[in-house]
Design a protein around this nucleic acid. Structure first.
Lengths: 207, 207
DNA sequence: CATTGTGAACGGGTTCACAGCA
DNA sequence: TGCTGTGAACCCGTTCACAATG
């Protein structure tokens, strides 16, 4: 039995589906058709059906998809039935905002540790965590078994800190610095740079 | 003369190229080959050549691309030769972090106004701006002519505020709330939700 | 000789259209 | 009737390969 791997582009849409379904659940809806979901997300209904059908037959003809059931399936597929502890490196303004953000709960994540190298910040409380010294990062992360990290340090130190994270056993990094990290294969890296998105939009803003 | 529109996926890579080239410039490099650029970004050299060739013949055989020249061209293509004033709505933790962020300079943007509805925040200084009352948003933005906005309000008010922004003349919104905005066609919308990226990564993190 | 620009080939993601089913 | 699941057709982005050139 050979499993054809699911295209990455399909996987990238699943979190979007989950987000939307959780919203629809809050609105009190019990089921959703591919047509309705597509309309909300600006995606074709056929696309959504095809995406979901890669993982099983989740829908019912004539009715659509049961929202609680589909949420459960997606959480399972995305590995967010359990809550992932994550570590945050960089306790600047952005790090503060993330550490205090309430939106991780119920979506599969929890900021469990915060690190920084600035002695003024170490020992201070940020959200539910106390900022720890980055020199202890490797040991602390190793023994905690945490494998997901958010990187909110200045660009100039992002590469070095990312390598430190990998040494500590981290295998998924969400990088907020506007540079391209170079890390071993097998390490998941995603980037978040608002300016890239702004520039993408200004392209279309005719003079 | 019929201009074939550039594929959106190509446009989305241009900001990445620009970011990288500006970094290479800081490193003191004067030219770059498609091979070298591709290696840095994890993209094929052919892809980069094809992307750039859509806009003109920027390279020189045997040498590659002149970095200052290519930066200039990309800034022109992306409309970031001038600096765009942008407005920020939502002066919470994330709004604060963005308003104080130094990285907009030299990449084409500047936070020019900040709005919030919380009377405790109105009048307070955030970065270089004073938080203004959201009831004045429509008028103030109209007369300023600003057309780009960052939306950092709670999910529950994001849709309403987004509509307000559109009424005020904004036509590009970077939305930080984890919901899908529904706005008129022609309005540019991009979303930033770190949890979508985290869930994308956890999919691949085998049990 | 290294590297660009590009037509052609390729691959794969999206849409179509419909059988099948509640 | 309404909607899913899916093979087939279609479309489009990527890669290939090479002529052209400084």
């Amino acid at each position: 039995m050979v499993k054809i791997p699911i295209p990455d582009i399909v996987v990238s849409r699943l979190p979007l589906y989950l987000q939307m379904l959780q919203l629809m659940q809050l609105e009190g809806k019990l089921s959703a058709s591919s047509k309705e979901m597509g309309k909300r997300l600006g995606i074709s209904a056929a696309q959504i059906r095809k995406d979901l059908s890669q993982f099983g037959e989740f829908g019912k003809q004539g009715t659509g998809y049961s929202i609680p059931f589909l949420i459960d399936q997606l959480r399972d597929i995305l590995n967010v039935k359990k809550t992932w502890d994550i570590i945050l490196v960089g306790a600047g303004d952005l790090g503060h905002a993330i550490a205090r953000y309430q939106g991780f709960t119920n979506r599969g994540f929890r900021v469990a540790m915060v690190f920084d190298s600035d002695s003024d910040k170490i020992g201070k409380k940020v959200g539910n965590c106390t900022v720890e010294d980055i020199v202890n990062l490797k040991q602390r992360v190793h023994e905690s078994g945490i494998r997901v990290a958010l990187l909110t340090v200045p660009s100039s130190s992002a590469q070095v800190v990312a390598e430190l994270l990998v040494q500590a056993g981290v295998c998924a990094i969400l990088n907020y610095a506007p540079i391209q990290l170079s890390l071993p294969p097998g390490i998941q890296v995603r980037n978040t740079d608002p300016i890239l998105q702004l520039q993408h939009m200004t392209y279309y803003m005719a003079r």
